[in-house]
């Protein structure tokens, strides 16, 4: 009963926000506010599916559209030029730009109860990291992103080793891991969760992969809003937050590799502090 009441209160609050936002938008702003998305680890051609799925989901809920980007610079340009919208980006990316942009992190993505992930460098038939000189390392994301990630993961003393790698960018983590299993690469950098997925698909292949290094833990996807849009953007943030309550919303979250969102202010202090913009 309490949950029902809470749900109704939130629904009324959202209606009020939406009405207010529509009223203001009519006078001063473009007709549609957008959810902007950029994640260097996403497969570029899955963006059409993401756009269709999110536009379909958002359309009945208000004047909203989903706008995915496959080039980081274009996403950041949109961020610099457009203060109306919710910007979804990786924890790694947010950490890099939060000092430059007036952005507030409002939601963090959650998968299997966790909002942090780490990357694991794993290889087959290799004793330790030093044996990787000159090998092909597979992973998701652009080559620049992967080299930066590998350098962060292996530390400054291994930068020359990372420079010796041939980096092979593949569309998904599971491709990177299978590339090692099937001999197209000698090592892979992937999320811990993807390694667990491989263990479920093929325990034998998983057991042959040896973890050699791991990155620091980083946040999964983060939803942020420009500070000047925080109040007006509240209804859209709430729509995203409630996606896990509808089957279509859950499907869309799964396309992003998430089960739901968590409010930044509900995180324990060290994490919410980490996400706070300076």
């Amino acid at each position: 009963m309490a949950a029902e009441s809470k749900h109704r209160t939130r629904w009324l609050r959202r209606r009020a926000w939406t009405a207010a936002a529509l009223c203001c938008a009519a006078a001063t702003a473009p007709a549609e506010d957008a959810v902007f998305f950029f994640n260097p680890e996403s497969s570029i051609d899955s963006y059409a599916t993401l756009k269709t799925a999110f536009d379909t989901y958002l359309a009945p809920l208000g004047p909203y559209v989903f706008q995915p980007f496959n080039v980081r610079a274009t996403f950041e340009q949109a961020l610099a030029q457009n203060s109306r919208g919710v910007y979804m980006l990786s924890g790694w990316h947010y950490g890099e730009i939060k000092g430059r942009q007036s952005l507030d992190a409002v939601l963090v993505g959650v998968s299997k109860g966790a909002f942090l992930q780490r990357k694991i460098l794993s290889a087959k038939d290799v004793a330790d990291v030093s044996a990787l000189k000159g090998v092909t390392v597979a992973g998701t994301g652009s080559e620049d992103y992967l080299r930066t990630l590998l350098k962060q993961t292996l530390g400054p003393e291994r930068h020359a080793l990372v420079d010796s790698f041939k980096v092979l960018s593949v569309p998904k983590d599971i491709d990177a891991l299978m590339a090692v299993s099937f001999g197209m690469a000698q090592a892979a950098i992937s999320s811990e969760a993807s390694l667990q997925k491989l263990a479920a698909i093929n325990p034998k292949q998983h057991s042959q992969l040896k973890p050699l290094a791991q990155s620091e833990k980083a946040f999964l996807l983060i939803a942020t809003v420009p500070r000047s849009f925080r109040q007006e953007g509240a209804p859209l943030v709430e729509i995203l937050e409630d996606m896990d309550k509808k089957p279509e919303g859950v499907t869309n979250l799964k396309l992003l590799g998430l089960d739901g969102w968590k409010r930044v202010e509900t995180l324990e202090a060290p994490y919410s502090t980490q996400l706070r913009a300076p």
């Binding site: 497969s43 899955s46 059409a48 599916t49 799925a53 998904k172 599971i174 499907t251 799964k254 396309l255």
Partner: peptide, 10 residues
């Protein structure tokens, strides 16, 4: 459903 983030076209 946990494999949907690996799907290019749904």
């Amino acid at each position: 459903p946990d494999a949907l983030d690996s799907v290019n076209r749904l």
